[in-house]
Simulated assay, not measured.
Amino acid sequence: MTDIKSKFQRVMLIDDNTIDLYVTSAMIKKNNFGEIIDKYTSAKKALKFLKRNQDNFTELPQIIFVDIYMPRMSGFEFMVKYDKLSSDLKKHCKVYIISSSIDENDIKRANDDLNVVAFQVKTITKEFLNNIS
């Protein structure tokens, strides 16, 4: 049996809901989307990791999936801080907002953020992962 290479080396998941983290992580593994999956239940901790490693591209994820509604720091608050990170990091990482929200204002706000590639309603699907390049 040959190993199928994953589409991306590293994927970061930021979601305070551990069940959603588990389901998304399983979907990523099942579809060979990410080799290494960094899971964070805290946007603040994820941000610290990104800040600490912003010049170390082997540690940085190519894809970041971030939830909107989380305690202490929401996905939108995370994006405001993310915007202050290095431009090289922002070129390397593609951010997708993943949320159970179908609020038009949330979707518009996510789509208006220049650092957000797309908004996706939970849960992510095989088709959604296949469309990411």
Rank of each mutant, 00 (worst) to 15 (best):
K30D: 11
Y22L: 09
A110M: 03
P71S: 00
T123F: 02
G34A: 08
D67P: 10
N56C: 11
I124R: 04
D113E: 13
N115G: 14
L89R: 07
I132F: 00
D103A: 06
E127F: 02
K94Y: 05
T41Q: 07
S87I: 14
K48I: 13
T58V: 10
R10I: 09
V23H: 06
M70L: 04
K94C: 10
R109G: 06
M12K: 06
K108N: 15
A26F: 13
D83Q: 13
I97M: 14
K45V: 13
A110D: 00
D15W: 01
P71K: 00
A26Y: 13
Y69K: 13
D103C: 07
Q54D: 14
N32W: 05
V95R: 07
S133Q: 15
L21K: 10
K44R: 10
N105Q: 15
N17M: 03
F33N: 03
F119E: 02
N111D: 06
M73H: 01
Y96P: 07
V11G: 06
T125K: 03
E77C: 08
I64L: 10
R109D: 15
I19M: 05
E59I: 05
K90Q: 08
K48T: 14
Y40N: 02
F57R: 04
Y96S: 04
A46F: 05
F8K: 04
D83C: 07
L13T: 11
S100P: 03
A26W: 07
I102W: 04
N31I: 08
L60H: 02
Y22H: 10
S99I: 13
F128W: 14
D20S: 13
I37E: 02
I14V: 15
V23P: 09
Q9N: 13
D55Y: 08
I102F: 07
I124P: 00
S99V: 14
F78P: 10
L114C: 10
F65M: 14
L50A: 07
I98M: 10
A26E: 14
E77P: 07
N31S: 07
A118F: 02
D55G: 10
F119Q: 06
I19P: 05
D16S: 11
K126V: 03
T2V: 10
K91P: 01
E35N: 12
S133Y: 08
K81G: 06
S133D: 15
I19H: 06
A43Q: 01
E104H: 01
L129Q: 01
P71H: 00
M12N: 10
K5V: 11
F128H: 09
K51F: 09
